[in-house]
Design a protein around this nucleic acid. Structure first.
Length: 428
DNA sequence: TCTGGGGTCCTAGGACCC
DNA sequence: TCTGGGGTCCTAGGACCC
């Protein structure tokens, strides 16, 4: 059996941890740039605050009811996420946990064959909540997709389930599938939901489970679809990952600008900053990149009242020799901006994506690089160490600029209680 | 006026090889 | 002269996830 453990309204729960007075009050957390609502509590939901909706639309409701509102504080959430996952590792053993996202993990429960899984779920939930202060819900079933179904239902009915639901018989599974709209199945997104609706006859997860594998292969993205049918029928087709994927295949740093910008200087400063950030992540995982790509997103005039994204323009460079050096990567990224930039346009967003990774060690062993490149490596690691120790990006490349008009807004961020000494929680 | 960011996997189709 | 069939690798694009 497989469990999915999921933190309830995770970002909001993190904020509540340091503001217990908000425990039964509505709370929302905003995305970067204070653009969208990315987390909301049940109380905020009850007031009609839309999930993933733009902040400015929800603002009247939020102000009317005095909903506590926070900008994203990723340092805080990352640290609390680590505490939750560490608790699970202690309880179940590292090899039985797959950390799926910042607030979710799959657990392989095959070692608990002979115990009462509902009781076991309650126990895990209890320990996590006691040790970390973060409330969680647990769904347990024979497959990942079904555990997600269980998790969703137990969240919808916290009182009766006490936050744990086990689907361990065909009858329970069938009942749960009938109570789940097909659009809420893990793996069915907007496009597929629309397609299934147009095709008629598939409204619930149960309806979908009765479709053939061949049908799903044809209509739901090939093997992805056949796996889905198998999983819904209780036959595992998506393994719990045995080893954590620590090496990313692609590293991106992209941001909306705080306001639209139009000069090439501003675009370049932003892109240089993102390249620096991406390069740091790259070095942290011990990789070097052979592909640098840059994209920019423009602001388009008048959208007729309907939201529309601007157009994106992207371009990439394949490097002759892989590198992890910030200055190298910035240099290539700057050349790409020169290609992409159009003075007649206004820009809302830009991003840098690194890919084509090789282990950084191979660079060291390369006899054909000039000796300066090895000095560069020392410079990079010194920079990373200083920035890590002081936690404030004190050492930077000049190309990233000093004024930074384009920097995103974080107007309502709470203190980084657990990761900055000078923002520690204070007790009188 | 104001709509996030960072990933993954899969498929189709083209280029190239023997 | 005959121009098949199977394999690999790459890229772009589409779908999904939280």
């Amino acid at each position: 059996m497989i469990a999915i453990i999921d933190c309830n309204s995770f970002y909001c729960s993190c904020e509540r941890l340091f503001r217990p007075s908000l425990d039964d009050k509505p709370v929302v957390v905003l995305s970067n740039n204070d653009g969208c609502i990315v987390s909301r509590t049940d109380e905020a939901k009850a007031l009609g605050v839309a999930m993933a909706g733009p902040y400015f639309l929800a603002k009247p409701t939020i102000e009317k009811y005095g909903v506590a509102t926070f900008s994203s504080n990723y340092n805080l959430y990352g640290d609390l996420s680590w505490r939750v996952m560490e608790t699970l590792r202690i309880l179940l053993g590292e090899k039985n946990i797959e950390v799926y996202s910042v607030d979710e993990a799959f657990l392989d429960l095959s070692e608990f064959k002979h115990t009462n899984l509902y009781e076991e779920g309650l126990r895990i939930k209890n320990v996590v909540e006691t040790w970390t202060g973060i409330k969680v819900s647990i769904g347990i079933a024979p497959t990942k997709v079904l555990s997600k179904v269980a998790n969703r239902l137990c969240k919808k009915n916290k009182e009766a389930t006490k936050g744990v639901m086990v689907l361990d018989t065909p009858a329970k599974i069938s009942e749960a599938l009938q109570a789940t709209p097909v659009s809420d199945v893990w793996g069915i997104g907007r496009q597929y939901a629309l397609k299934l609706k147009e095709m008629n006859a598939v409204y619930t997860a149960y309806d979908l489970s009765k479709k053939s594998a061949a049908w799903a292969h044809k209509n739901l993205g090939g093997v992805v679809g056949t796996r889905m049918i198998s999983e819904l029928n209780g036959i595992p087709a998506i393994e719990v990952a045995k080893e954590q994927l620590t090496q990313k295949k692609r590293i991106a740093c992209t941001r909306m600008f705080g306001k639209t910008v139009s000069t090439i200087t501003e675009v370049k400063q932003a892109v240089a900053t993102y390249a620096s950030r991406a390069a740091e992540k790259l070095r942290r995982q011990g990789s070097a990149a052979t592909v640098v790509s840059v994209f920019v997103l423009t602001r388009e005039p008048s959208n007729n009242g309907r939201f529309r994204h601007g157009n994106t323009y992207s371009h990439y460079t394949v490097l002759p020799i892989a590198t992890s050096a910030t200055n190298e990567l910035i240099k290539h990224a700057m050349a790409l901006v020169d290609v992409l930039y159009d003075a007649s346009k206004q820009y809302k967003k830009a991003g840098v994506i690194l890919s084509g990774f090789v282990p950084d060690a191979t660079i060291q062993a390369n006899l054909f690089v000039a000796p300066q490149q090895n000095n560069q490596r020392k410079l990079m690691s010194t920079m990373d160490n200083i920035n890590f120790a002081l936690r404030n990006d004190v050492v930077q490349f000049a190309a990233t600029g000093t004024k930074r008009n384009w920097k995103m807004r974080v107007e309502m961020r709470s203190p980084r209680y657990t990761t900055r000494w000078n923002e520690l929680f204070e007790v009188k």
